[in-house]
Each structure stands twice: as C-alpha cells, then as structure tokens.
Design a protein around this nucleic acid. Sequence first.
RNA 1: GCCCAGGUGGCGGAACUGGCAGACGCGCUAGCUUGAGGGGCUAGUGCCCGUUUAGGGCGUGAAGGUUCAAAUCCUUUCCUGGGCACCA
Length: 839
Amino acid sequence: MTTKTATVTPETIEVSIGLDRTERYDPAVIEEKWRERWERDDLYWVDDDAPGEKWYSLTMYPYPSGVLHIGHWYAFAVPDVYARVQRMRGYNVLFPMGFDAFGLPAENAAIRHGIHPAIWTSENIAAMRQQYRQMGAMIDWSREVATCTPDYYRWNQWLFLQMLERGLAYRAKGAVWWCPQDQTVLANEQVLEGNICERCGAEVFKRDLEQWYFRITDYAEELLRDTEALDWPERVKTMQRNWIGRSEGARLRFMLETGDSLEVFTTRPDTVWGATFMVLAPEHPLVAKITIPDRQADVDAYIEQARRQTEIERMSTDEARARTGVFTGGYAVNPVTDERIPVWIADYVLMGYGTGAIMAVPFGDQRDFEFARAFDLPIRAIVQSEDGPELDPATMTEAYDGPGVLVNSGPMTGKRVPEELPQIIRWLEETGRGKAEVTYRLRDWLISRQRYWGTPIPVVYCDDCGMVPVPEDQLPVELPLDAEFTPTGQSPLVTHEGFLNTTCPRCGGAARRETDTMDTFVDSSWYWFRYTSPREDEGPFDPEAAARWTPVDLYCGGIEHAILHLLYARFFTKVIRDLGLIEHGEPFLRLRNQGMILAEEGTKMSKSRGTQIAPDELVARHGADALRLHLMYLGPWDQGGPWNSRGIAGMERFIRRAYGLVTETGAGPFDQPLPEAETTPLRRLRAKAIRRVTTDLDEFQFNTMVAALIEYVNELMKLRETALIHTRDWREALETLVLLMAPSTPYVAEELWERLGMPYSVHHQSWPDYDPALTQDDAVEVVVQVNGKVRDRLLLPVDLPEADARARVLTQPKITEAIAGREPRKVIYVPGRLINIVV
RNA sequence: GCCCAGGUGGCGGAACUGGCAGACGCGCUAGCUUGAGGGGCUAGUGCCCGUUUAGGGCGUGAAGGUUCAAAUCCUUUCCUGGGCACCA
C-alpha cells in the first residue's frame, strides 16, 4: 500500500517543468477535483489483508442531530490527521465512521414537529454523511454503521440475552422522574430547575418502577485494577477510579427493637462505640416497619419531600443547606455498647450506596456531626489525637477524623487508628458483630428506558410462565415503525397492540412484550467491534475480524465521555471476553480527548442562541484544508476553547505561501553545484522540520505541529533569493514540505505532489525520514545571569567544560560591569543553557 | 456540594526534566506595491520609565513560601470549564 518516498530523478524533474507559475491557489477547484478522484479510486477503502501492522484508529461516532457543527470537525478532522500519519508510516489503518442513531432528540422531534424518528434520523444521517465528505477525512464508508437498524440492534438484544442467561441482567425497582401531567417518565435533562417538567411545566417527582439493570458492579474490581496499564490521560483514569470508588471497611449488624436486623457499611468500624443514632435513607424498606404511629405523618411528609430532590441536591455538603431529617420513633441497639439509640431518616443517606443505612458517629464524621448539632443528638468522644489538645464533644466545632488513640471504646480502648484497624475488625468478626467488607460507589447500570426510539428489550411476560426471554432465533424483536405519537410523550410501544400482544415462546399462550427499550449507551458499548465486520449476520461481529483489528489502538473523543461511556464500553468488553468472543479485556489501549469548542464569547455553543458555527460556509470561503489547520492551531486539542473567526485567514495565507513556494521553485532546474558547507543549513532545516512535526504529532500537539510547518515555510521563503533553490537539496526540501503537509492539508498536498510531477497519490507515500545528526547544533546561545538576572548572551560550544565557560564569561565587559568588582560566591553552569553568577 | 481540569500580551497560544517568559498565528502601527477586494511585500509590536543611541524597572488570576533560579514545586485563596449515573 505504501511506496518509498520518491527521490529526485531526471524524469521527475522533466515532468515538473510543466508547472504553471502564475496560477493562484483556489481551494474550491482543488478540493472538488481530488474529492472526486479519491472517491472514484476508493483511495480510503480498507483491506483486511493489506500488508503492514494493523492500526485501529477510532473516533467516537456522532449523534445524528441534523447538521454538522464545528465540534464535529474538531472531533473528527484532527484525529484524521494522525490516522493519515500512521498510514504513511506503513500501518494498515482502520478509521471507520458511523452514527449513534437511537435516542431522545429523535423522539422530541417526533412530538414537536410530527416527523417520525426513523425518518428524522435517516434524513439527518444522509445530510451529515455529505458534510463529512467535505472534511477530506480518510473514512472507509463501506463500513458505516447506524445503530437504529435492525441488523445492528438485533445484536444488542443478543448480547442482552447472553447477559440475562449469566445473571448479568436483572430486574429491580428503581426511582425515575415522573410527570403526573404527561403520565410519562422524564430524563434528568427534561427536569428543569425547581423540578418542573420541560414539556408541560407540571411539578414532577420520583417514582419507583420495575427496571432492568446490568450487573456492572460484578466487574468493579477488575475495572478499577485495569485502569493501571492503560495509556489514557491521567485525569480520565482518576475520574474513573473515583467513580468506581472502592472503600474498605466492615459491615456491622444492629438489632432494631422490631426484631429486624439492620446492616450498615462503614469505613470506620473502629468508631462504632461513638454511634449514637442511626440514619436510614427515606426509601429504605425498613422505614415503614420501624416508624411508630405518632411519627407516621412526619415521616410520610419527609419521604414525599425527598422524592422531589435530585441526587446532587441530596449529596450536597454545603453548610448553608440545612440538615434535614425526621425521627421515626424507633430504636436500635448499638452492638458494642448495648445502648438504645434512635433511628432517623434523612435524605443525605442514599439507597444506592452501601446498605442504604448508616450508623451515625457525630464525633468522627462531619455530616453526622452537623446532623447531631441540628437535632440535639448526643456526641461521644471516641478518638483522641496524640499530639493535639483533647477534644471535648461539648465544645468542638467540627468532627475529628484524623489519627489517634481510641477512648471510651470498651475492650478496644487504647488501640491506635488507623494502624490497628485490622485488629479491631478481626475482633468484630470474632464476636459476631460484623465482617470485613469492600464496597464500591459504583452502582449497577440501569438500562431500562420507558421510551420508543431504542432497542426493544427482548423478553415477554406470560401469565403462566412469567418473564420469558425471546429465543435467539426469533431476533430481532423489531421496533414497529407504524407507531402513534401522543403529545404527552408516552412510549407508543405501550399502546401498540400489534407489538404488545404476542405468544409465549415457552407455552404458546398469550403473552405481553416488554415495552421498555435499552439505554443508548448499550449501542455505543460495543459498536467498534461491528466496524470490523459490519455485515456479519451470525453474531455481533466476526470473531476473526475482531481478532485482527481489536483492541482499538487509539480512541479519540470528548472529555465529557470520560466516565459513563468509557466505563460501560470497558464493562462490555470484559463481558464479551467472558462470552469467549475475544481474548482481550480492555477495548481502548490509548485514549486522547479533545476539549470543547466554545462559542466566540466563551460560552457553550447553542443552537437556540445562534452561536453555533457552521463549517460549510467556512469551507466555501477558505477551503477544508485551511479549516483543518485552523482547528489544529486554535490551541491544545485536549483543552478546546473559544472559537476564533479571524485566525482562519492566516491559515489560508500560509497555504497560499506554501503553494506559491512549491509551484514557483519546484520546477528547477536543480543542477547548481554548491559546496556542502553552503547546503548544510538547508539540510539541517529540513531535518529539524521533520523532527518537530513528527514528535508534535505523536504527542498530539497539533498546534505546535502547525507552527513548525509555518516556520519551515517561513525559513524556506527567506532562502528563495539564494542559489540554493537550484540544488537537489532544495527539491528534496520541497518534497518534504508536501509530505509533511499531507496529513493536515490532504487536498492541497495532493495537488502540489502532482505539480511536482510525483506519482499519485501523496497519501500512499512514506513519512519522510531524516538524519538525526543534522538536528544537533554545535554551538548554542547561552544566557549569562548575574544574581538571576540576564546580563548577556554568548554563543558557546554545546560541550564546553565549566572552567572554560566560566573563564570566557568573566571577561565579558557586560558581566564585569554587572559584577562591579564583587567576588563571585557561586557559579551555576547548565551546559547549553545558562550560567548564573551569584555575588 | 462532590470528583476532574484550566487561568500567561489587545486576542488564540508557546516555553524540554525548575534554567532566556511571550515561539507561531490573529489583530494593530508605519512604509512600499495603482491588481482599491477580506490582495501582496518589508519593518515594528508585553507593560512602564528613559531615549539619537544605550539602558533600566515591572510582569504568567491573587497572597505567601522553597530555590542561585519558579509560568513550572509547596500552602492558602479567587475565578472559569467538564462530569455527577434517563442528553449523548
């Protein structure tokens, strides 16, 4: 697939005599010309069996929202540059493209504008596919995937069934936002400030519904451990680790006066002697049982109130936010002190973490402390710091969770914490009061959606057999397209008789289909496997093709996906591995995130405020090549930042200069014999340019890579009036320029390559090489400081010994003047950089 | 609120491992170019003082610290952005 870099031969020079010296750079003409040629030749078709090591370069597929905005370019055109470099380096590169085509916006469009989600989605895909073509990206369209097609979502269903069979999918109650007016479930996004329904303005609350879950927590430990080896940005790995949130501690059992036992998880079982009350989540199943009649009204009112809180509100530790809670009237017994302690409910305890109940130790936990102060509950000192003043519960102003020695702690009094925590846990285990346990913050993945535009969950409910999975040979369970959309937004599946009523696969009797659909994150949790064999109909993908291409070598996408999507994709990969379809357990070996492009004034781009930037106009005015460069040049790709409408002209100017340089001096003749001493600077220039561009690309520093290209052209421009332009080295410098530009500006590079008389295509050439010796300078400018202030600069040999450097420097007039006769107390010499004289 | 990033000229940004702050581009200023359009070329451009030249001082959100030397390391603090499990 790749050929060696063409060297200058008399033939190529002769062909290039035909260069037109007067024609100006016209991106519209050039880009149209090459787009057509590339498509005609299938230049980007990927052959599984092509020679070269594989390189799977994946970019997060877009949601087909309708039109491409500049963020899509930022996300796709920039990784395209790197995929192209890898191809020039000889890799067999897979750089596919698809659409994440199920989801809420299509349903909103259906309700608001009366257009069917299927039509809306397919029209959007068609429009966006056209726009992607402008980019000049190296996409093999023959592998395109759209997740809303039955031949794709069929395999969501298949994977679901495998998970159901293995106990990784299960049903349980879960709280969802409910709009009483529209009689529908709402996404968090649809709940506005003050718990208002986005559609009708009614006040909404949380309601418990039967939901489907994936047991991702089974993989918590592995997901945590495997982050170690990944070449991912450290910030993403940290966020994932914190999200999984491993805590070591113990599970302790308290007895309630009702006779029930109440289990709690705590990371500080050593503080159990200080547990002076207990708090249950308002949703806890034991609340109904423990509440005494007198307290019932207050408890009910509080539960009602908690249903109106978002989780973010509930978890807030803002001091201004008043601690709320109510007493149930019930009591528990502290298992180590045998004291009777009151049981409260409060919304800062979440049902989804630990056991949904806590022992409250106000002395050692800030939230418990504030709660105790607010409700006048007892605080008992159980740890004293060894070097601080003794803490008195009556006067302390905040909880103490530092190290120390246990006090008032029965047989454990005098133990050091945290050092002796293991012994304390062992004692609790031996006396039957609890056991060591590890808990994760990570919760199981709720995949049910009470919506239409998604993958139907392939189970039926039979009056006799209960829940029955749809047999694999009956997949896909197709989403009916003749659905009626009500303005309320209730899923049409619930009222679609043809879909709803079916027969039981087990007994043949009447049965009802599951009307929930899957979270669209399911679609995106394995889509990259599908690209390796997009027409496979025996399974989600051909295991042989997957073995050839996966794991993905480089995954690019927005930082906003740092947690959820990436975690779910990692989970699915491990499940698919355990199904025996692949051998690896991590999907993406290397991850690079782009930042977000903001509107020019620094705020989020918004369709409604008209601050979105449309790439089409920019392409029409400046060309796709200039737009690609401009996006790379805006700033560090991983940081994003505000759009800048002015800079693109500078990129167009750069291309025009490069274009003029190559077309005007590329024809030769190149027969001027010059001594090596005169051509060496030119060869050095070329070698340094290659080095900078290459290393910057490998580090994903596209902005400085473009700066290196610009500087290279600027330097060559300065040499344009010298005899160097008639040397072979000049010709080589120009060819190198075109090759270095090829990944970034694929259209104009192809044009210039042709104009240099080189064989089609520049995108099949090898990445240029250089002699490292040429990038080493013999002498460097060294800064001379006196007391840290720059006083002079000297050109010194790189490896000059300190004594010589010191002698040279101390005789410089500027330095003797600055020292003014004082005696140097110390001299710091950093060879090749600076000398600092301290007086 | 919690978790994760980031703050450098008029603007976007650069700065290897703690070693010349401001590369490169935009914008701006002046000059040239009659091919007067959003064209091209040349020179200048962090701020302040000084100025024929020279030179000097200040300067990386704020305050403090470590060091011969800090945009870079440490402490405190302010501001902005991303995520927070049904947007994707």
